[in-house]
């Protein structure tokens, strides 16, 4: 019984092989006789020309970065023209007042510069988020340049203005106060500038109201500097902190700042969107 079954299976297998061979042969004959008209060179060129428009161009990473940087610069220049004069004037006034206090009031130049250094960025957040706080964000979200781009370019303007003021005061002090050590001065403004900026952005992402954020940030900063300045011991302790700690703190703050502003730039726009959604509920 088993023997006859095995022989039947063998026969079937041979038959299937023969059928496949026959099919192969027939297919070969069909394809051999099938004539495909080869297109002319002009037709090939015309087809390539049409298709080329639909093929996405792979841009180089450097080109993309250049393009984005140029766009950011262009947007920042536009925002520069639309930032309130109150912001420009008030901040420059603080710095001029600081210089007067240093030169005439014999204030400690390092501590004065340290106190003033983060103020423009903190106050600048009112300008950065003015469209959200004044109800224009809904409109700005629908424009060609995204809300994220607008917020980022305003941050760049505010940050750059803060840097310009800090650098300017450093240059003025180093020119007119020979006893001032320029590197110490740079560390004294760069560290609070970066650290307080990070702190302010983190507070802003939670509170979502630039006026409150600015008030809270300045409050914290004022408390910290007051505690520092009021006692001789704390000033002495602060002045003796190793420069390495300033470098580490600066490095950490800059890393977080870049991450917050550039990589998570959308987070602020997104938090505005979430804020708006909550308002509309």
């Amino acid at each position: 019984m088993e023997e006859s079954e095995q022989s039947s299976n063998l026969e079937n297998s041979i038959l299937q092989d023969a059928e496949i061979e026959l099919l192969d042969f027939e297919m070969k004959q069909i394809f051999d006789n099938y004539h495909v008209e080869y297109p002319s060179d002009d037709e090939i060129k015309a087809t390539i020309k049409v298709i080329r428009n639909s093929i996405p161009v792979n841009e180089k990473k450097t080109d993309v970065i250049c393009k984005k940087s140029f766009s950011l610069l262009k947007n920042s220049l536009r925002e520069f023209n639309h930032i309130s004069s109150v912001f420009w004037i008030s901040n420059i006034s603080f710095f001029i007042f600081g210089l007067i206090m240093i030169f005439l009031g014999r204030f400690n130049p390092y501590l004065t510069v340290m106190f003033l250094s983060p103020i423009p960025f903190v106050l600048g957040l009112i300008e950065v988020f003015k469209s959200r706080d004044r109800g224009i964000a809904e409109l700005e979200m629908t424009l060609k340049h995204s809300y994220q781009q607008i917020v980022l370019s305003r941050m760049v303007v505010v940050g750059c203005y803060n840097l310009v003021l800090n650098v300017s005061i450093t240059v003025i002090l180093s020119l007119f106060m020979k006893e001032v050590w320029i590197w110490k001065l740079i560390f004294y403004w760069s560290t609070p500038f970066t650290v307080v900026s990070v702190m302010t952005l983190i507070i802003e992402s939670r509170i979502r109201n630039s006026y409150t954020t600015a008030s809270v940030s300045i409050g914290i900063w004022l408390t910290f500097t007051s505690c520092l300045i009021l006692f001789e011991q704390t000033i002495e302790w602060f002045e003796n902190i190793d420069v390495v700690y300033f470098i580490i703190l600066n490095f950490l703050a800059i890393t977080i700042l870049i991450n917050l502003v550039i990589r998570k730039g959308g987070h602020f726009a997104f938090s505005s969107r979430t804020f708006i959604e909550k308002v509309w509920r």
């Binding site: 003015k130 004044r134 109800g135 224009i136 409109l139 629908t142 060609k144 995204s146």
Partner: peptide, 17 residues
């Protein structure tokens, strides 16, 4: 962006600077 470039929007409560 291409879509946003094609639309015009007047929100319910227009806020202006």
């Amino acid at each position: 962006e291409e879509y946003r470039n094609l639309i015009g929007y007047l929100p319910q409560e227009i806020a202006l600077y």
